[in-house]
Write a protein that binds this DNA or RNA. Structure first.
Lengths: 347, 347
DNA sequence: CCTGTAAGAGAAAACCTTTTCCCAACTCGG
DNA sequence: CCGAGTTGGGAAAAGGTTTTCTCTTACAGG
């Protein structure tokens, strides 16, 4: 009564369970049980302790809890994507999924440095993370660190080290199908494919799907044009496609949005209309690019936020002791229709 | 001797100091002192314990250490920039600075949600972070959470809540000076400024510097054109600037790289050469955009990685007990010269 | 030989919480 | 009135490490 007109003191040491117990006139054991709905005591005692804890602004020390429970409610997120186009939505999804479950995320940027990677992994293990999510900027390269036999579960997102790991990746072939089938439905007959370098696994997966869909629709297959992931390559590819004596494409399926942007700009410079003369579809649905092209770019979205969320939830269930089958989970892409292909397929 | 031909068992429980002590035939106290270079013992004992620890793969449990030391070697990074253009380099710098000092980073994306923000802050405090870095996507808006009277030091990066906090921001006015002075040195006489919306503080800071430099050089000041941060606005602004009956600019200083990109594209469409007829400078040095423009864009770089590093190091010194004066530290920008302004100023 | 000191190492407290076990008191049926 | 069961609550251990204090032994000096 004498001192409770003061709000919580501002710069004080953290108030511990012991403080609460002393203030409420009980033992720490009883205080703990009161706050955790454990044990037996009169409703009145329980409420009095709770009220005391509230008044003192008591918050349990997670460190002590973690030490005891051997569970820290913390996971490590390993990434080597300083660039961020892919890892940011991924991280956002992961973070969402985990935070909703009271789990915090250690961010570890390991670049391409194995030493740094090992440093981070060791630090995370020392801090007793409950699990690790590894994510990379490329599906077919993995992080410069061995996560093989850790004491904690590991999930891979957007990267896939070996077949018996648990990995979430986007269904690139499916995404490519979406795009090419969309173009077919719109009546395009000569669909070209301009994409990135052969050193990327996704280039082949998407190109194969592209060829498959064309074959299924009885359309001519022109081998995909492989280059770099840049606007400049988009420009250049248009020269290849439209300068030759052969029949000109009426649609271009691009390996990413930057290539698509280059393609669209080059087409405009040649006086070709998009989507009038040529329909264009991009990949990645990088909104900042897709929305800045004129016309705004229809693009395949890899649903990275959802992918991250799935990865996060799966890690959580693994941490919780649920078993999970090893292997790769491919998550479907979706087509975001804007204006670079003509009228939306509304039937 | 009997069992040390086995390497560290792979899936075992973590080995504790007690295990090491038992194996080496000493007490945990002695083992601890041996490993931490504390206390007195024969060099031989110390080395024997160390060797045992190595052999067993002992790693101290950070949770226990943190609990005891009241220092977790962990800091929280609060951001509301899901977009990432600014926060990624920032985070990278922060992370670098901290990791080099053995400090891990909790990543907390609070979006614009005060409830989420409070949740994260509470969780970080419960986990006994040593400090917090708050970073936002806008200098003049701060996070939806009150970090006023925490038990741990707080540093702001790229955002600035109130004058008596410690904040690191880029020197936008200085950056604008760099750009406009560069154009002046190149002999440009009619320099326009196309920038973002008036609701951004940086717009005014940069515009003022722009006017100052023009005045200092005896050049005519045409009020800056305020719009959005988009390519589309860059296009539109060119129409404003070049359609009128008044004298046409021979240089445009743009508020960001996307605007600059729009400006350059629009200029080309009108048959105006860059940098021949018009020099263009951007802001942010967003490499993916700056390098894709034709010609590659000269742009002001805010040195966000360095800014992040400074913020991280300052937080560390604060955590270490060093005092730091409150207030705003403006870090200089730098001009990255590419080809959109003509010959580099080499003298 | 005795005392003082230093070396070497261990016991125990501390950090904070949770949980198991236990004890005292009370109630109730017989 | 007695034994059994229940109720309310506390003591203590556990989790892993660090640090202070204490203790034993050895050795040097007198």
């Amino acid at each position: 009564m004498a001192s409770d007109d003061q709000p919580v003191p501002v710069f004080s040491k953290p108030v511990t369970l012991r403080d609460v117990a002393a203030e409420a006139g009980v033992s720490v054991a009883t205080a703990s049980k009161a706050l955790n709905d454990q044990g037996r005591m009169t409703a009145e005692t329980r409420e009095r302790i709770r009220e005391t804890a509230r008044r003192l602004g008591f918050r349990p020390n997670s460190l002590a809890q973690s030490l005891l429970r051997r569970r820290s409610f913390t996971v490590g997120l390993l990434t080597n994507d300083t660039y961020g186009r892919f890892s940011l939505p991924l991280m956002s999804g992961i973070s969402d999924a985990l935070v909703d479950n009271g789990v915090s995320v250690f961010l570890c940027n390991v670049e391409e440095d194995p030493r740094l990677g090992q440093l981070h992994v060791d630090a995370m293990l020392d801090k007793r993370v409950d699990g690790i999510i590894a994510t990379g900027k490329r599906i077919d390269r993995h992080l410069p660190v061995d996560l093989g036999n850790l004491r904690v579960p590991v999930i891979y997102a957007f990267t896939q080290p070996d077949p018996d790991a648990i990995a979430f990746v986007s269904d690139d072939a499916g995404g490519a199908r979406l795009a090419v089938e969309h173009l077919c439905r719109l009546g395009r007959k000569r669909i070209a494919h301009v994409t990135g370098p052969a050193s990327f696994a996704v280039v082949h997966a998407r190109a194969q799907a592209y060829r498959d869909v064309l074959a299924e629709n009885g359309l001519p297959v022109t081998g995909p044009l492989l280059g770099s992931w840049s606007e400049a390559w988009g420009h250049e590819a248009v020269a290849h496609l439209f300068d030759g004596r052969r029949e000109r494409p009426d649609a271009v399926f691009c390996g990413n949005d930057q290539i698509a942007r280059g393609v669209i700009d080059a087409l405009r410079e040649r006086g070709l209309g998009v989507p009038g003369d040529v329909a264009v579809i991009g990949f990645d649905n990088w909104e900042i690019v897709a929305e800045a092209t004129r016309p705004p770019l229809t693009s395949v979205d890899m649903n990275l936020v959802a992918l991250g969320r799935e990865a996060g939830l799966t890690l959580l269930s693994l941490v919780g002791g649920q078993p999970a089958a090893p292997g790769i989970r491919k998550l479907p892409c979706r087509l975001v229709v804007r204006q670079s292909c003509g009228h939306p397929p509304d039937g």
